[in-house]
Design a binder for these strands. Sequence first.
DNA 1: CATGAATGAGGCTTCATTCAT
DNA 2: CATGAATGAAGCCTCATTCAT
Lengths: 201, 201, 201, 201
Amino acid sequence: MARTIGSHGPKTMEAIRKAGLKLIYEHGFEAMSLRQLASEVGIQVGSLYNHITTKEDLLYDLIKAHMDDLFAQFDEVRAEGRDKGPVERMRDFIAFHVTYHILRKREVFIGYSELRSLEPNHYEEIVALRRQYERHLIDILRQGEALDLFRCGDASVAAYGILSMLTGVCTWFRPHGRLSKEQVISTYSDLVLNGLMPPSR
Amino acid sequence: MARTIGSHGPKTMEAIRKAGLKLIYEHGFEAMSLRQLASEVGIQVGSLYNHITTKEDLLYDLIKAHMDDLFAQFDEVRAEGRDKGPVERMRDFIAFHVTYHILRKREVFIGYSELRSLEPNHYEEIVALRRQYERHLIDILRQGEALDLFRCGDASVAAYGILSMLTGVCTWFRPHGRLSKEQVISTYSDLVLNGLMPPSR
Amino acid sequence: MARTIGSHGPKTMEAIRKAGLKLIYEHGFEAMSLRQLASEVGIQVGSLYNHITTKEDLLYDLIKAHMDDLFAQFDEVRAEGRDKGPVERMRDFIAFHVTYHILRKREVFIGYSELRSLEPNHYEEIVALRRQYERHLIDILRQGEALDLFRCGDASVAAYGILSMLTGVCTWFRPHGRLSKEQVISTYSDLVLNGLMPPSR
Amino acid sequence: MARTIGSHGPKTMEAIRKAGLKLIYEHGFEAMSLRQLASEVGIQVGSLYNHITTKEDLLYDLIKAHMDDLFAQFDEVRAEGRDKGPVERMRDFIAFHVTYHILRKREVFIGYSELRSLEPNHYEEIVALRRQYERHLIDILRQGEALDLFRCGDASVAAYGILSMLTGVCTWFRPHGRLSKEQVISTYSDLVLNGLMPPSR
DNA sequence: CATGAATGAGGCTTCATTCAT
DNA sequence: CATGAATGAAGCCTCATTCAT
């Protein structure tokens, strides 16, 4: 992504990213035209190319930035969880994941649904990052199993299931709806942790 | 959808639906061109219009057929579960949902991701059907709570979570991969049922 | 949409080739826009693509057809010259070359000046054909030298020189101008043959 | 052409002319973009306009400079040839023309092939200069005919032919190839002079 | 002088759709 | 039914040029 350095340049670039995020979320990447994007930003179509190199590149830029943010924020959670047990780590993970996915629902949605519009190189890079993130959850599950605190049939299956469940939140959660973020986190934490813990003790 | 009845017409229409399913799944509805579709079927673009009325209409046709199938098959499960308790009904639901989503992963995927390409009327219709389906799960949860067999914070939240988890299967499950369908069903059944049942006291 | 005045299939393609020849000759390949071309033909821009695959491909088509014609006509001259001596063969070559270049001045001009706009593969193919044609002239010169009828310093240099001279005709010759085609042929035949024949001994 | 006088301005202008010459020669005037040009020079596109007024004006500048050089150098040849006979003048002309066209092949090529991209005024001016140059050759031919040393059917036809032949050198001559410049000059001098001189004496 | 950003026109190409044959 | 050719809108992107900083 060509981030040009100039006087009112960065402001335009930021406007493009913001409008792009909105339009891609609303219509999908393929369905969003650069005409729409430019008009939303308030410039001519050709002017977009003073800031981006390609339509695909804008998509990559948005997704990559989202992944970077995800990791940056998640790293703090991980750092704090260094000495905690798997139950607490899982609770932290759920709280973090749900929070991030509620606050950044558009980035997250795009990050899943528009992956296939990325060029092979970009696609591979993002998928690798996603796998890395998933592995953190699998680690927690494995740790729990080793300590006989969790019992999940297959760690990856469970991890994928939990991630799907938590991620689904960004398709239906409404910021000022009936349920608060905390309620969702609590419901899912119970569901998951009860689900993982062996029923008989 | 104009389903013309003729000598080799139905065969062509079936080929179009099959090719459409494949191409939309692979590239997305917006990204699939009717040229691609015609070429996959082995006819000229113009000939498509002897079988479909509109590109959007083909999409609707595919999604609607998928929803009809889903309900047709689900109705059998429901009929059999009339006298069962919520635990067993849940088990059946999970087995059914996972099975269907593994076998019809392309239809299911399209049914979620390309909804926004439907015209308003079609969109509303499909979303209504989907809600109806979700309500079945919510019913099971409510029944379980009433009998004090389940304890889920909020029934819809739990339902959405469970559905997301189970549906996610069609993004990662590989037919001849490491895990069998039965293993997945078993893992998820345990996870969900343990998650729902109050920890033994 | 109702079809406007116009032509069907092959007729349209022929119109495109004709208009393309004219416009490329007048403005150059790069400078000719498909808008211009379509408007000259009397169809919409997009309709061009029912007949051509690419702008470059139209250029290649025109040049290739011209080369094929050149060879087809030249083969007759060669066949007739099988038993002739180099002097007469040279006379025939000059007459043929000048005639063809006067009658097909636009094709010839394009065939030289727009070569660089061809894709590598097409470029190589045409250049190879051109070389093959040049070799005929070199052969005549070599035969003349072997029989001690011609004396040219270096056969290729002479050949290139003669070809340049004869080809130049299509930049300045005007069909109904001061000079007839026959006068040009006669002038150049004398110039070349005298030039090649060793000064009287 | 705005030739701004400043500290490092002339150096930039010179770089632009040099890069322009190269790129126009390689890709053609229409195909060369100012982006390419700026990048070759190592500045931004907008900065070009501190040195040139228009893309077309750069072309004119290059062609005009080439014509001026051609005349400047040719004037020396003419001055020296004031008292010589047509044969020696022709020899000098050939040597000069070939030498110049070999050394300045890019300018010469552009001066022929990109004329049509000039604005009408510029076009007329350059064509007039070219005609003036051609007239020198015609003069030599006429002088030779008057002295009964040359016999060319039609002086202009012969002149155009000779010029085409000599000019063609810049399309195929390779500086360090099989043939030296002197060989080419010698071959063409013989060809032309033999061609012009009446065979029987 | 150089720069980055803006413009508006236009580049080639593809799109879904129509319809006479 | 299938075809091929037509349409007009729209796709992404590049163009030469201008101008405030």
